[in-house]
C-alpha cells in the first residue's frame, strides 16, 4: 500500500431510491479514483461493510427499514476511521444537526447535488480516511520499532 495519492478510494453509497443509484453509477463509471459499491438497501450495505471496510460511507437520511442515522452509527462502530456522509433531500436543519452530532458526520450533502461538488467531497473524505489509516499504521510501526529498540537495549 502506497501513500494516499495513488490508492483507490473505497466508497459505499446507500440510497433506497434506484433513480439515485442508477444516476450515480454513470457518474462513477468515469472516475478512476474511486471504487464504488452502490446499494438500495441499508441492511445489505451493512452486511457488505462487515466484510469489506470502506474509506467513505454515504447514506440518505430517510430510508425504509433503517434510517440513515441508525445506519451510519452502525458504520461508525464497524469502522470508526471511515468518513461518513449524508446525502439527502430532506430539508430539515434539525435532522442535519442531529446527524452531525450523533454519528460524527464528515459532511452533510444536499440533494439536488452537483456532480463536481459530490466528487470533491468524496475525494477529500477519502483522503482523510486514508491519512487516518496511514497515521494508524505509522503509529503501529513506531510502537513496534520502540519495542524492538527497547529489547535491543536490554
Amino acid at each position: 500500500m502506497g501513500g494516499p495519492g495513488n490508492a483507490k478510494i473505497e466508497v459505499v453509497l446507500v440510497d433506497d431510491d434506484a433513480l439515485v443509484t442508477r444516476t450515480l453509477s454513470f457518474l462513477f463509471a468515469g472516475e478512476d479514483a474511486f471504487s464504488v459499491q452502490l446499494f438500495n438497501d441499508p441492511v445489505a450495505a451493512l452486511r457488505h461493510l462487515e466484510q469489506h471496510p470502506a474509506h467513505v460511507v454515504v447514506a440518505d437520511y430517510l430510508m425504509p427499514g433503517m434510517d440513515g442515522l441508525q445506519f451510519l452509527s452502525k458504520v461508525r462502530e464497524l469502522h470508526p476511521e471511515s468518513s461518513r456522509i449524508v446525502l439527502t433531500g430532506y430539508a430539515d436543519k434539525d435532522a442535519a444537526i442531529r446527524a452531525i452530532n450523533e454519528v460524527g458526520l464528515y459532511h452533510f450533502l444536499e440533494k439536488p447535488w452537483r456532480n463536481e461538488e459530490l466528487l470533491l467531497v468524496l475525494r477529500r473524505a477519502g483522503e482523510r480516511a486514508l491519512l487516518l489509516a496511514e497515521l494508524a499504521r505509522r503509529t503501529e510501526d513506531m510502537a513496534a520499532f520502540r519495542e524492538k529498540l527497547f529489547r535491543a537495549l536490554l
Partner: peptide, 17 residues
Amino acid sequence: AHEIHTPLGAILSSLEL
C-alpha cells in the same frame, strides 16, 4: 422537498453527464 430533491438530483446529475 425530499420527494422532489431526489429526482431533481438525478436530473441535474444526468444532464451534466
